[in-house]
Design a binder for these strands. Structure first.
Lengths: 337, 337
DNA sequence: TGGCTTTAAGAAAGGGCTTCCACGCAGAAG
DNA sequence: CTTCTGCGTGGAAGCCCTTTCTTAAAGCCA
C-alpha cells in the first residue's frame, strides 16, 4: 500500500504554526519571519512533504503548469530547448506538460478541444506557422501564448535569425576556393506547418554568396529530409556534379554528420577537399571537429519561458519579439590545423 | 477576461437536482433514473459544462490520468500506438500525459524524481529494456505499470512478436530466385535502451531462410539508422555487392520507402529486379504498392490500455503477457500484377 | 392494507490547498 | 500612559468536486 502523503496540516503541526503560514512559505509570501520560514522548511523536509498540485490548482485557480506544444522531429534541438525552458520554469516551481505533435490530426485535437493543453496557465508553442492551421490564426484560449523558435505579430516570440545565419555561413565559406553547395532540410510535416527554417538558411546563404561575388546554382542545393543519411546522399550528389574542393553549408549539424561519414567513406579529406559548415552548435560537433553556426537554443527557450511567466503574472503590453543571433564556431572542418 | 467556467452547482440548479446527482451522472453511477440523467446531460450541454479535472483529482483521490513514456523515434509507429491507447482510455474518461524520451538523462529525471510522471494513476511504458536503466529493474512507484511494445516478467505487457515477423518475411521471400538481403535498424538511443527490435526481426529472417535452404550472409545485412535515406544507402550498398534480382527485407516501412526511392532513381523495376518487403503496415504502403508485415499497432495499444485500467481498478493477478502477431500483406513490390 | 425492502436523490462531509479576515503585540506617535 | 499603525500569524471560508449518510418515495409480499 502506498503510504499516504503528508499534508499541509501535518507540516503545520510539526512546525508549530498554522496552515496559513505553511501555505505562505510554499508561495514565497514575503510576510513570514525568516525564523518561522526556516522552521516550516525544516518540517517539510523532515516529513518529505511536497504539495499536492491538484489541490493547489483547485484552491488557487492557477495550475502552476504550462503546456509546451512541439514537433517530434530534430530531437536534439528540442531537447536543448526544453532544457532552457525548464530551467526558468522550475525555479518558479512551474511544471511543463508536453504535447508532441505526431501528426496534423493530433495537433488539431490538441487545439480544438478543451484538451489538457488548455487546462494550464499558459501555452508555449515551438513550431513555425502552427497558427496557420487555426481559424483566425489565433489559439482558442484566453490564456497567454508565447511562440518559441517562431515569429508572429500576434503573440510574444523568441526566435533565431535563420536568414542571418545563412549570410554568416556565406561570409565564412566565400573565402575558400572551389564551388559552393548547400543542403536544405525539408520534412513533410514542414509543409503542413509552413516551416521555412530550411529555406531561410539557404536563402541567406545564397544572398551572402552573391554579395561576395560567388554563386550558388540551383543544382548545388540538395533537398533532404532531416537525417544523417540525407547528408551522405547529398555529398554523393555533389560529387557527381563537380570535383573537389567542395564548400558545403549543411543547414543542420545532423546533415553535416552524414557528410562527414560519407567523406570518410569516399576518402575525401575534410577541411581540404570538403569544407563543411553545420548549423545548430550541438555539443558533439566539437569532438567531430565540425565548424558550425551555434544557435543559443537554451537561451531562446529560457527567454520564451520568461515572456510567458510575465504574461501569466498579468503583463498586458503588446507582443514582444526577442531575436537571437547564431555564433560562428570555426573548427577543423573549415580550417585544418 | 475569461468567462468563468460553469460549475457543478449551476448544472444542478438548471437541472433541478442536487449536486450529488450531477456527480453521479458524471461518473456513470448506475442509480440515476434515465429520465433524470437526460435532464442533467441537457443542462450540461446547454451550459457548456465540463468538469474541472483538478477538483476531481482532489476529491476522488484518483487523477483520471495515465502517463505514457515513449521514445521520440519512429513517429508513425507511436502515433498509431497512441491512437489505440487513447481510444480505450478516452472511453473511460481518462487523459494521457505524455513523457517523450529525448535523452537518457531526461528519462532519468522522469523516473527518479517524484515527477509528474508519477502523479498519475498508472504508467504505460512504450520502450524496450527501459527497466534496465532502473535500480532493481523496477519503476519507483506503487502505481500499476504496463509495458507496451516490450516484454518483461515483472509487469503486464503487450507486444508484437518481431522474431516471428522475421520468419514470416523469410517464408514469403524464400520462394523467389536471387540473393536475399536485410536492413537492420539501429539507433544510438537503442543501445542505451537495449532495444533489440531490429535484431529480432533480422534474426527471425535469417533463421527462416536457413530453414528454407536459403542463406543470409553477414554482408547482406545493412545496418542503418531509422530513416528513408538509410534505405537508399542500403540499396546502393547491395548493388555494389551483387546483381539483380534482390530480395530485400527492409525491417521497417520507412526503410523500405528509401529502397523504393533509390530503385526508381537507379531504374530498377520493383517487383522484378527488386523484391521488397516492409514491416509495420503503415497506411501509405498501400498507395506505394509495398508488401509489408502489418503490425496490429492500435490493437496492441488498446490492449495495453485495458491491462492498465484493470490494474488501476484493483486487479492483483500475476503479470500478464499479450503477444500479437504480424500479418503478411502482399502487394506489387513482391508480386507484380 | 400494513410492514417490509429496495431505489433514487438531496444534504453534508470531506479532500488539500489558497486567501482573507481578524487578532495580538510590537513600536511610533500624541 | 494612551492611541494608532502595521507586521506576523492563526484559522475560517472557499475552490469544485466525490462519496457517504440519510431520507423520501416506490415497489413487494402476505
Amino acid at each position: 500500500m502506498a503510504k499516504r502523503k503528508p499534508t499541509i496540516h501535518e507540516v503545520a503541526h510539526l512546525a508549530k504554526v498554522g496552515i496559513g503560514t505553511v501555505s505562505r512559505v510554499l508561495n514565497n509570501h514575503p510576510s513570514v519571519r525568516s525564523e518561522t520560514r526556516e522552521r516550516v522548511l525544516a518540517a517539510m523536509s523532515s516529513l518529505g512533504y511536497s504539495p499536492n498540485p491538484h489541490a493547489r490548482r483547485v484552491a488557487g485557480g492557477r495550475s502552476y503548469t504550462v503546456s509546451l506544444i512541439l514537433p517530434v522531429i530534430s530531437t536534439e534541438f528540442y531537447n536543448r530547448l526544453l532544457e532552457g525552458i525548464e530551467q526558468v520554469l522550475s525555479e518558479e516551481r512551474y511544471e511543463i506538460a508536453l504535447f508532441p505533435i505526431f501528426s496534423p490530426q493530433r495537433l488539431r485535437r490538441y487545439l480544438e478541444s478543451r484538451s489538457l493543453a488548455y487546462q494550464t496557465d499558459g501555452l508555449l508553442v515551438a513550431s513555425q506557422g502552427l497558427a496557420h492551421l487555426l481559424p483566425d490564426q489565433k489559439f482558442p484560449t484566453e490564456r497567454p501564448v508565447v511562440l518559441v523558435d517562431a515569429h508572429s505579430t500576434r503573440y510574444d516570440s523568441a526566435y533565431v535569425d535563420n536568414y542571418l545565419g545563412g549570410r554568416m555561413a556565406a561570409a565564412h565559406l566565400a573565402q575558400f576556393p572551389g564551388a559552393h553547395f548547400a543542403i536544405q532540410m525539408q520534412e513533410e510535416l514542414d509543409e503542413v506547418m509552413r516551416n521555412t527554417v530550411g529555406q531561410e538558411r539557404v536563402a541567406g546563404f545564397r544572398d551572402g554568396l552573391e554579395q561576395a561575388g560567388r554563386k550558388l546554382p540551383k543544382a548545388h542545393v540538395f533537398k533532404s529530409r532531416f537525417s544523417a543519411e540525407g547528408g551522405r546522399l547529398a555529398l554523393q550528389h555533389f560529387m557527381r556534379q563537380s570535383k573537389p574542393p567542395y564548400n558545403i553549408f549543411a543547414g543542420a549539424d545532423l546533415l553535416a554528420l552524414g557528410v562527414l561519414e560519407e567523406a570518410e567513406r569516399q576518402g575525401l579529406e575534410v577541411g581540404e577537399e570538403v569544407r563543411l559548415l553545420g548549423f545548430d552548435g550541438h555539443p558533439w560537433t566539437e569532438a567531430r571537429g565540425l565548424s558550425t553556426l551555434a544557435q543559443p537554443i537554451e537561451d531562446m527557450g529560457a527567454e520564451a519561458a520568461r515572456l510567458l511567466l510575465d504574461r501569466i503574472r498579468g503583463y498586458k503590453g503588446s507582443p514582444r519579439a526577442r531575436r537571437f543571433e547564431p555564433t560562428l564556431i570555426i573548427r577543423q572542418s573549415t580550417q585544418p590545423c
